[in-house]
Design a protein around this nucleic acid. Structure first.
Lengths: 210, 210
DNA sequence: GAATACATACCAACTGTATGGTATGTGAGT
DNA sequence: ACTCACATACCATACAGTTGGTATGTATTC
């Protein structure tokens, strides 16, 4: 357990542990139902440590959304779906990759910021904005490949790469809701199959079998 | 103000008002952040009345999910999207209808049971099940039209009408999340456009323009 | 058809506990 | 000497749920 130093104040053990605990507990119980005491217990720290690092519960919400952006950003950046030479194949590989992440407990693969956005969109605009930045920032990483796939087919449709990237995120978020409601990942997987099929129908040059 | 009777115990004024208040307040604040006092204040009744009609907060959650099923069920049953003779047109008209409902404040057009499912899927299985029944029951009303549209093209794909109906609901739920995160209905509308395009690409006989 | 007995709808005041947040202290690194 | 990371003990409030009551309807008995 690294002791925190002035040089690396973000590395303080308690802070990291609280963020990890928040990520896990909030995905199970939701933001509002998660109490500060829950987080302290899960992180193995005291309330003093908590309020040393975070001014309020809302501040933790913002921080954990940013933490989510950073960690998932690194995960996707280093994921293998960027390998295919063809941009459309990269987009499809992205969806396959998302599908492969749907495994284990619901709370382990569903999206923290999608959950928090629903709960806080009116009551905590600061958290909502951090969630939006996380989702939209991630969507942005898909735009170049979508644009390239459109160029390859010389498409100039009534929608933009950004539109489609956002739609992809919407489908993923919706798939998680269905999974939670049905207490099963099956419908989420199926939704991603439909999404993949849509992308192929839209962007694949030789029309594939449906 | 109708006085309740033994013959119509469900007609008690306080109960209805509490359900309406719950529908509205929970869509704004979420289930957990909505307190019993909030609901009593919004409904103009006392806590005594509340706990006379609902054994617990969880019981109200189940009741309001069922209330949502009933009221939205009636709304969709009487909506004009059933009119087209062609089943595919009915499915597309359904999506147009859903799109037309996206207007006004976010809390007025987003889905109560989608919101509640996210918050309660672990902590309150009874509520989650009522939410699942609401979403899946609604999805079921689309299956016949989807099946008929498939028959019309003699399709036998790797997906079922039920799959696609669930996917449609997933897209709608996800569209609501993006709308809340971005604090704007625009991306939700756009996602429904993509959904409509997918259905046409899948099920329309003469391939339309993308 | 009046008296009785019970059920239902609702109200006002209260309770034990959990909550987010604070005040103050301590001890190690610089 | 001083700051920073964290701990302990505490507080005011808000929370879900309870208690004990009133008023009004309904079913039963004679």
């Amino acid at each position: 357990m690294p002791r925190p130093t002035k040089q690396a104040p973000e590395r303080g053990d308690a802070r990291s542990r609280l963020l990890e605990a928040a990520r896990d507990v909030i995905r199970q119980k939701g933001f509002t139902a998660t109490t500060v005491d829950d987080l302290c217990k899960a992180a193995g720290v005291t309330k003093g440590a908590y309020f040393h690092h975070f001014d309020s519960k809302e501040a933790l919400g913002v921080a954990v959304a940013n933490y989510w952006s950073e960690t998932t950003g690194a995960l996707f950046e280093n994921a293998p779906y960027h390998r295919p030479a063809n941009p459309l194949d990269r987009v499809l590989a992205y969806i396959d990759f998302r599908k492969s992440l749907i495994a284990g407990d619901l709370a382990e693969f569903t999206c923290l910021v999608g959950t928090m956005a629903q709960e806080t969109y009116i009551s905590h605009p600061a958290i909502r904005d951090a969630c939006a930045a996380s989702i939209l920032g991630h969507a942005e990483t898909l735009e170049a490949d979508i644009a390239a796939a459109m160029d390859a087919r010389a498409l100039t449709p009534g929608w933009t790469p950004k539109d489609l990237a956002h739609h992809i995120q919407a489908v993923i978020q919706g798939a998680f809701i269905l999974a939670k409601a049905t207490d099963s990942p099956a419908s989420a997987q199926s939704s991603l199959d439909h999404l993949s099929r849509y992308i192929r129908l839209l962007l694949a040059a030789p029309r594939p079998k449906v």
